[in-house]
Amino acid sequence: MSETIKKFMYLNRRAPYGTIYAWESLEVVLIGAAFDQDVSLAFIGDGVYQLLEGQDTSESDMKNFSTTYKALGDYDVTKLYVEKESLEERGLTLDDLMPLTWEDEDDDWAEKDSIRLVSRAELADVLDDQDIVYSF
């Protein structure tokens, strides 16, 4: 669709259901996937709650969009950075998050983890390396 390839970062900072930012961010990611850019997502602060396993919105009558994260691999969105300190500050570990994977067609369709646990300092370097940062 475009000859230019830029590094696109979607920075997710908010919990999933208190505001619409998380869901409308995901809508941009899904549309953006068609543009063949070098896409990453990062989850910091309350944004790490977006990836929690076992989300249940049945009592609040809100749309549970958590399964959409599991489909990201099919859209070739395979780099999901999660900030370690943000998890720790909220009493969470990687085990509390949904297992998110993608299939690597260059490696006999091996299933690989999409989530990359990084420190705050490491994530700063990742952000510094981006061309575009969409902040939600």
């Binding site: 475009s2 230019t4 830029k6 696109f8 809508e27 941009v28 549309i31 953006g32 068609a34 543009f35 850019q37 061309d131 575009i132 940062v133 969409y134 902040s135």
Partner: peptide, 20 residues
């Protein structure tokens, strides 16, 4: 128009400024 316009803006501009 669609969200593709936002992605295209990111690709075609030199700087994307986000206000919020």
């Amino acid at each position: 128009s669609g969200l593709g316009q936002l992605i295209e803006a990111g690709i075609q501009s030199e700087r994307l400024m986000v206000f919020g």
